[in-house]
């Protein structure tokens, strides 16, 4: 028990780093909405570009993308902060997944909704923001929840470029102190985080349950 208490402060610092990566990567949510809409653009080059984007960022491992943004750029003489590389990799990768979710969500809305808004005189922007997207958000909530839970766990990948987030701190302590206890503590941290995320999405779903 004393041991647990003794390493808790260090684990907690690691957890803060994990939380920071998690929080910043949530920026991929609004980005995903925009990219999802762009993917459906009538302007073909844009739609095509988005298709390539999604293909590349969903089609390669996040780990590899992380290495690219850090070591890859370094190799061609571009030095960026380790944290910047992490944010680039995570935001662009998650935005690709989320863009696909939003795209299919937008496409699942009945054409009649667009037509009703159109004949009432709503502009395209008003139709999107007032009529289509609110219904899309409700529909995509479960898959988005899954992605956010994946994100909690994916933050552990950044150990590869030696950032001391929760799992890396645990690994280092486990090796130096020759015990598995730090791993158990890290697991509890992750479980708590995913439980909170799950709770949050349940709560939002319940709030949006006022219509079918």
């Amino acid at each position: 028990m004393d041991y647990v208490v003794s390493i808790l402060p260090q684990m907690f610092l690691g957890w803060l780093v994990t939380m920071q990566i998690f929080a910043v990567t949530l920026l991929s949510l609004p980005l995903g909405v925009i990219l999802g809409i762009a993917r459906l653009s009538k302007f073909k080059p844009l739609a095509w570009f988005m298709e390539c984007y999604v293909w590349i960022f969903r089609g390669t491992p996040l780990l590899l993308q992380l290495l690219f943004w850090y070591f890859g750029l370094m190799a061609v003489g571009v030095r960026i902060e380790r944290e910047t590389a992490v944010y680039m990799a995570f935001i662009l990768n998650y935005a690709a997944y989320l863009a696909e979710i939003f795209r299919s969500g937008i496409q699942s809305i009945d054409r009649g909704q667009y037509e009703a808004a159109d004949v009432l005189g709503l502009s395209r922007r008003q139709t999107m923001t007032q009529i289509i997207l609110p219904q899309v958000f409700k529909r995509v909530l479960p898959p988005i929840g899954n992605e956010v839970i994946n994100l909690v766990k994916d933050t552990a990948l950044v150990y590869i470029i030696a950032i001391s987030e929760l799992s890396r701190v645990a690994r280092i302590r486990a090796v130096t102190d020759d015990t598995l206890v730090p791993f158990a503590i890290a697991a509890v941290f992750y479980l708590l985080m995913t439980a909170i995320v799950q709770r949050f999405f349940k709560w939002v779903e319940a709030r949006l349950d006022y219509y079918h």
Partner: peptide
């Protein structure tokens, strides 16, 4: 098929276009 806006109440369905468009 009516095409009402499912996420808006009946009253809001009637109010949205006059407010946004007019």
């Amino acid at each position: 098929n009516f095409n009402l806006f499912p996420h808006k109440s009946v009253l809001e369905n009637l109010m949205i276009a006059p407010m946004l468009v007019n």
